[in-house]
Amino acid sequence: MDHIADGLEKAIKAIKIGVSSTEQEQLHRELDQFLDWLEPMLEVDPGDLEGLLFSHDAVNVLREDSPRKSGLAELQEAAPNFAGGFYLVPKIME
């Protein structure tokens, strides 16, 4: 089985769609055409350019990364039951 036929079969299986053998043959021909159609794009040499990942330039607004007191001791004190580094909860499984 050639690379495209193999990849096509895996893709059909992965996306869980029922495809008849006739349709699969047609898709094979179309995928062949499509990959040929993409050749000019592959011939562009972008050098070591990093590709875009997002369509807009907005970035997350993050607070300054500075160490702060965690308050873990207060949480442990407030917990009904804490032992050995774990918060103990009622057993729910036999």
């Binding site: 794009m41 972008p46 350019l49 590709g51 875009l52």
Partner: peptide
């Protein structure tokens, strides 16, 4: 071959 190249073309 295809997807990563397309991301670069997008930027270009």
């Amino acid at each position: 071959r295809y997807y990563r190249q397309a991301l670069k073309i997008w930027k270009l």
